[in-house]
Design a protein around this nucleic acid. Structure first.
Length: 485
RNA sequence: GGCGGCAUAGCCAAGUGGUAAGGCAGAAGUCUGCAAAACUUUCAUCUCCAGUUCAAAUCUGGAUGCCGCCUCCA
């Protein structure tokens, strides 16, 4: 499929034509710190990254995709000598930090699977790459980019003149010590590469290093692991918009200082999911997980659908009503995809033509709202054949990942042997007793209708409705019963 | 305090100069004993003010409101 693909590059703040630097596109996405469940705001970013990856693949690129797992403890800030999030989580749950990391890593990966997010090529853990981090810090030390303070080894940002370019910072206006103690740090922008373990207590995670026992700074892991698995410059590096200012600025500095090469060609950042006008945070009642969402009866893919209502670079307002709207839309969309009931041959060229507006939208910096509108247009277009619509939807779904060919409620189907059949659709397996009970009520209702006892017929239908069923009298006389949830 | 972003119908939102995508909800109609489903139709002048222009939601200036980053954070 030949399409020019445009991506908004945070470096430079403009939409650019994507050109791969390698045969296999290198894509690095900042992963989670596994000290707690991911909330749906976090998940929004991974959904957008998955769409980006699927798009590249649909355009014919091979993609080498790396997502890190931050399972090492970092302090609540560079200067804080107190507990870090991993250790806090461990204390909170009475487990070791290693158990905490393993548990939440698994939970995170389960969430991604439920959302149809495809697995990355590699999934490196920070704790398995301490050697690479130490080696990179040593390189930086050798090249004169570091200095030592009483609590760690720091990166000297004054030695890296272009430090402020990426985020458009003005060092003069940064407020030194406003929110975080400077300690012995020389410049506001300097950051820790290696932190020494506190002398008065034993950390659960700490390692030997040329500078003493301690643990790595937060930023170094992404630099070390991306260099380990991807050739520089990395084609695409993704993350949440909150990372632009500090994390990615620091990554660029240390990676380029250590390697002498350009670090990343395209920086792509996703905006936040907002709730009650603020961003979703891992503390407080704003914390909505996929688990919570499922408990309320929503499917994970409804959330994926919801994410397509807005562009990834704009904040998206979450509410249960709007999620519910997306779920209805997904159900309707699946209904609009014709069943495979014909052997009509569909030419690939025809499908590509049909899908042109869809791909134009996707390739314009992943404009999914427009892409979805294009898909609706296709499915409502009366001049296309059913098979053309179906094949087009299947093709679009390789990017959307919405299981569009799945029917809403056809997991289990039960039919009566009446002359005019009674068909029951359910997502769950039903006891024969339950099924027979439903059949019996329908037969009674049919009898009432035949006798023009419409009040009685409606009463019987209401009984079924109250059980959570919908009742449809089809033109051919069959009665269709669907469990609504 | 610095930097960045946003303000479009009941809700979620596209749209960066030529007269408002799409979805959800709602309304009307066809169909139905009534429903359900389906189909058809319908539903905004874009926070406010002042400019530029033949033409602005889209550009400029101002006002108001809101959010994010600057600390770990998707």
């Amino acid at each position: 499929m030949k399409h020019d693909f445009y991506l908004f590059n945070t470096a430079g703040r403009v939409k650019e034509l994507f050109r791969a630097a390698h045969n296999e596109v290198g894509m690095y996405c900042c992963g989670p710190t596994v000290y707690n469940y991911a909330h749906i705001g976090n998940l929004r970013t991974y959904i957008f990254e998955d769409v980006l990856k699927r798009t590249l693949q649909a355009l014919g690129y091979k993609v080498r995709h790396v997502v890190n797992i931050t399972d090492v403890g970092h302090l609540t800030s560079d200067e804080d000598s107190g507990d870090d999030k991993m250790e806090k989580g461990a204390i909170r749950e009475g487990k070791s930090v290693w158990d905490i990391a393993a548990f939440y890593t698994k939970r995170f990966q389960d969430d991604l699977k439920a959302l149809n997010i495809t697995d990355p090529t590699r999934w490196p853990k920070a704790t398995a790459h301490i050697d690479q981090m130490i080696s990179m810090i040593s390189d930086l030390e050798r090249k004169g980019f570091t200095y030592r303070t009483n609590d760690g080894i720091y990166f000297d940002t004054t030695r890296f003149p272009s430090y402020c370019d990426f985020a458009g910072l003005d060092p003069e206006t940064l407020r030194a010590g406003e929110r975080v103690e400077m300690g012995e740090k020389r410049a506001v922008t300097d950051f820790a590469l290696w932190k020494f373990s506190p002398s008065d207590k034993k950390r659960q995670m700490e390692w030997e290093s040329p500078w003493g026992v301690g643990f790595p700074g937060w930023h170094i892991e992404c630099s070390a692991m991306s260099a380990e698995y991807l050739p520089l410059p990395i084609d695409i590096h993704c993350g949440g918009a909150d990372h632009i200012r500090v994390h990615h600025t620091n990554e660029i500095a240390q990676s380029e200082a250590a390697s002498g090469k350009k670090f990343v060609n395209y920086w792509v950042h996703g905006e936040f999911l907002v709730i009650d006008k603020g961003k979703m945070a891992k503390s407080g009642e704003n914390f909505v997980t996929l688990e919570v969402l499922k408990k309320k009866g929503f499917s994970a893919l409804s959330y994926r659908m919801f994410c397509y209502t807005a562009h990834y670079r704009n904040p998206l307002s979450f509410s249960w009503d709007s999620l519910s709207a997306a779920e209805n839309a997904l159900v309707n969309l699946r209904k609009a995809v014709p069943q495979q009931d014909s052997s009509e041959h569909v030419e690939n060229d025809v499908i590509e033509t049909i899908l042109t507006p869809f791909f134009n939208a996707v390739c314009d910096d992943l404009n999914m709202p427009r892409a979805m509108a294009a898909l609706w247009d296709i499915l409502k277009n009366g001049s296309l054949s059913l098979m053309q619509k179906r094949v087009a939807a299947e093709r679009a779904d390789t990017i959307l990942g919405l299981d569009l060919t799945q029917r809403a409620a056809d997991a289990y189907t039960y039919s009566s042997d009446d002359e005019k059949r009674i068909v029951v659709y359910s997502l769950r397996e039903l006891d024969t007793g339950v099924c027979d009970g439903i059949f019996e009520k329908v037969r009674l209702r049919r009898a009432a209708r035949a006798n023009k006892d419409f009040a009685g017929a409606d009463r019987l239908r209401n009984e079924l409705v109250n059980l959570g069923l919908t009742v449809k009298d089809l033109p051919d006389g069959t009665t269709e019963i669907t469990f609504s949830s």
